[in-house]
Design a protein around this nucleic acid. Structure first.
Lengths: 226, 226
DNA sequence: CCGGCAATTACCCATACGGGTGAGGGAGGA
DNA sequence: TCCTCCCTCACCCGTATGGGTAATTGCCGG
């Protein structure tokens, strides 16, 4: 049942009477509803052609390999690997890939992550049709676009320190109400080690205690679920 | 620019050759993309008619008053008031309103909130077309549907204690990294009072420390923003 | 009118927490 | 190869935290 479906790639020339190449799109979103919205939204553009759809990160990479779309519209939040993860993988294989990340809310962290991962754009799903169409064209011709002010904030941000894998694990247990000692038991290390990790977490996140760290974790999307 | 648009309500009979009444639908979602997906998805059903759309809670109520749809599809998460809030308001005015809540993730709390608010159904946006159509019909004919097991869990749950306004205020400061003393200063009460509130919060949320309380707050949507 | 709950405050106490400091081993990039 | 970062661990210390218990005031609803 879980199968990305390919759309016909024939009949291109009918949509391209002036001899220009069609703009080949791929959609990645776990909600068929949203994909359908995009198809309806973008299908009206004569020179747009949706050549592939995918509903998770793995499919996205697979489909990208097969179809090599000009522009990819990728949902940021998907079950399992995120859209950003998929973006990274795609661009590792295809450094020229042009991917627009779509999201529901514009928290700062995911925008930065998308920028770092090489996204060509980042827009809210509430974007209006015309704006989206314009963005797709802009991206196709090599442009980039991110929420207002983000580029500047990205430039002059203090290199937001990333939590190490171990720290993320620790933070995940912190939000579950584990004490340092219990985290130590869970991870098989000493309480002192955990305290060191927690201290590092607080410092890196720029927060004062574990409660605020948990809030920061939620706000920055540091937890796998949620 | 921010305007819900009405669709024509004329021509009903053409869609209703057997003399049955059409099933009149309203869509509420802040993403035009998603609404468009629904239109495409549901538009194929001969006897479905989308009579109104809204992109936030206020519009939803307004549109409901005007169009009185048979079934409403409502996004749970919208900027400002949530879909659950809108649902409550609609059902306060129209106790017979049949509303299906749509959401991205199925945390327990919002499902319960939807049930309590009188939703007729609760489904993930990843729902397949046929299933959604079936659900709409089912709801129209008086049925209800919630995620598997939720009804039972709802029944046998210990009446999840609600946080008092003061406790919510306190929790909000806790997640900002305030100490009990600082919260006291901020709220103009003694540290002892804050400690009493925090104790009550921990008890009501069933958590062990303030970090977990913050996590619970995020998961249950207790914070205004986010 | 009375019971219940929210809000307030107080006190004791054991412990968890966070800051400061230092240090060793191992992996990986310059 | 050297340097850096991650992971590990340790000790000290002052304070914040959370559990227990109890009391007062004020409002709302039965």
């Amino acid at each position: 049942m879980k199968k990305a479906y390919d759309l016909q790639t024939g009949g291109v020339d009918e949509n391209d009477p002036m001899g220009r190449n069609p703009l080949r799109l791929m959609l990645v979103d776990d909600h068929s509803m949203v994909r359908m919205g995009f198809v309806t939204l973008l299908g009206t553009e004569r020179d747009f052609e949706i050549v592939a759809e995918a509903e998770d990160a793995a499919q996205a990479l697979e489909m990208y390999r097969i179809h090599r779309p000009d522009v990819t519209l990728m949902d940021a939040k998907m079950p399992g690997e995120s859209g950003i993860d998929a973006l990274r993988k795609i661009r590792r294989e295809f450094p020229g890939a042009r991917v627009i990340i779509l999201t529901t809310y514009d928290f700062e962290e995911p925008v930065f992550a998308a920028m770092e991962a090489g996204a060509a754009g980042y827009v809210l799903k509430s974007v209006k049709r015309d704006e989206l169409v314009a963005l797709v064209r802009r991206v196709h011709s090599g442009g980039r676009r991110f929420p207002a002010g983000m580029a500047e904030r990205f430039a002059r941000r203090q290199p937001r320190e990333k939590l190490s894998p171990r720290e993320l694990e620790t933070l995940d247990l912190v939000r579950r109400g584990f004490s340092n000692k219990d985290i130590g038991s869970a991870l098989g290390v000493s309480e002192n080690t955990v305290k060191a990790h927690v201290k590092s977490i607080l410092q890196k996140l720029g927060v004062g205690d574990r409660a605020e760290a948990v809030a920061a974790g939620f706000e920055r999307g540091l937890f796998k679920d949620v």
